[in-house]
Amino acid sequence: MRVIKDNAIHEDNWVLISEPSQDDELPGGDLIVPFDYWKENQAICKQRDDKTAVCINGDNNIAELADHLDQFQLIALEFPAHKDGRCYSHARLLRDRYGYAGDIRAIGDVLRDQLFYMKRCGISSFAIREDKDFEDALKSLKDFSVTYQGASDENLPLYKTR
């Protein structure tokens, strides 16, 4: 999967399986599976030789994942449309409430002009929509050099430094 991560463009081995069939075995390789699939097939996911990550959408209850976070090197958050903002809250809960330290990846309708907000909410890699210019998107992470409120990236509000 091609992503922006650590201020650079990377290609990594994660593959998103949006609709794993219930009976077949999962293919090999590092996979991102839907949250609902993971819930029902936790044993299968654990036994795999390769890595498994989970993909959360706005409808999912992130609290159900809270006790299992250390199994995941990556959690994907799905933005079905760029204006669906629920996963911003999911990201903040993962980071600030549940202390998740792995990679949080935005997937779906991920566009340049939302990256700055995503980053502030604790999202650490961005699977930009494939038809978009990754180089161009990279620039947006520097849109603002100052922010008012605390968030997952910078905990303290600006006024503390004034």
Binding site: D84, G85, Y88, S89, R92, Y117, M118, C121, Y148, Q149
Partner: peptide, 9 residues
């Protein structure tokens, strides 16, 4: 509230 990263969408 200005550019609140969580509440802009």
């Amino acid at each position: 509230s200005t550019f609140h990263p969580e509440f802009s969408y």
